[in-house]
Design a protein around this nucleic acid. Structure first.
Lengths: 133, 133
DNA sequence: TTAAGTGTATTACATGTTATGATACACTTA
DNA sequence: TAAGTGTATCATAACATGTAATACACTTAA
């Protein structure tokens, strides 16, 4: 249950500071959102994933069920769990999540007394030292 | 324990989704960071705050102790809890926190596949519709 | 000296979330 | 039929959080 575990083409970084199912959910959702997993692709079964991550199947199922609730996956009893084939849904999810992240960020900065000017200045200054993939 | 409670000049918004002591800590820390509470000021006693927020003194003390660990307050046994008189410490705290918030934000956006261009574009577009305090 | 108001510590208890482990059932495919 | 799927349930444990009550040490002011 330490740092990194590889499952197929997916790499997971798990720690004990937060719920495991939440970390699985986030990291798989992000992978789907940024297009790292092809649409319609079958993902590892609950048991397989559980064994690879050294967790209980229940924990993996918890994450899988959340993904299905989000419309990111389709589960077929007896067959497995598959990434949705709806490109539109994935893009919508990505946009909504980005929007939420953005709002949360701005709210926190404003609560610390930073203005729009400050935030943009800070970001552009920071960009100078970083790479731009 | 619902939404808003006023304590002196401070306004608190508490909900049950997250630890109460954490919300008290965050909201007081932000108030200090943005200069809403004068340096050296005495803040409400543990019991007073507990009564006002309808929480147990233990919960308030938990938050107060965290603030002292951060160097934001000084507690004097028998007298009360006071905001630090060190302007430098407050500014340092504000900067460090902003830096952490910024890094977390960028990491999340990058994990969703957004580039620097995207992020800056998104922010500047959003700024158009908002006010700039 | 006394009383009231501080921060602090301890103990016990209740609750909810998280995770595990085991088992069982329903469905699909080969 | 057998193996591999998702799914459900139950018991258990661990942990964080919050409440409640009590006690102690210190400071200040009456």
């Amino acid at each position: 249950m330490l740092d990194e575990r590889q499952v197929g083409s997916l790499r997971f970084r798990l720690d004990l500071s937060r719920p495991i199912y939440e970390q699985i959910l986030e990291q798989m959702s992000s992978a789907i959102a940024r297009g790292d997993i092809p649409l319609g692709e079958k993902i590892p079964s609950v048991r397989e994933m559980a064994q690879a991550l050294r967790v209980t199947p229940n924990t993996v199922m918890h994450a899988y069920q959340e993904m299905e609730r989000e419309g990111l996956t389709e589960t077929r009893r007896g067959q497995g769990t598959f990434i949705t084939t709806s490109q539109e849904r994935v893009e919508q999810f990505r946009t909504e999540l980005a929007h939420r992240v953005m709002e949360e960020f701005l709210q926190k900065m404003k609560s610390l007394g930073y203005s729009w000017e400050d935030i943009l200045k800070y970001l552009q200054a920071k960009r100078g030292g970083d790479s731009d993939p």
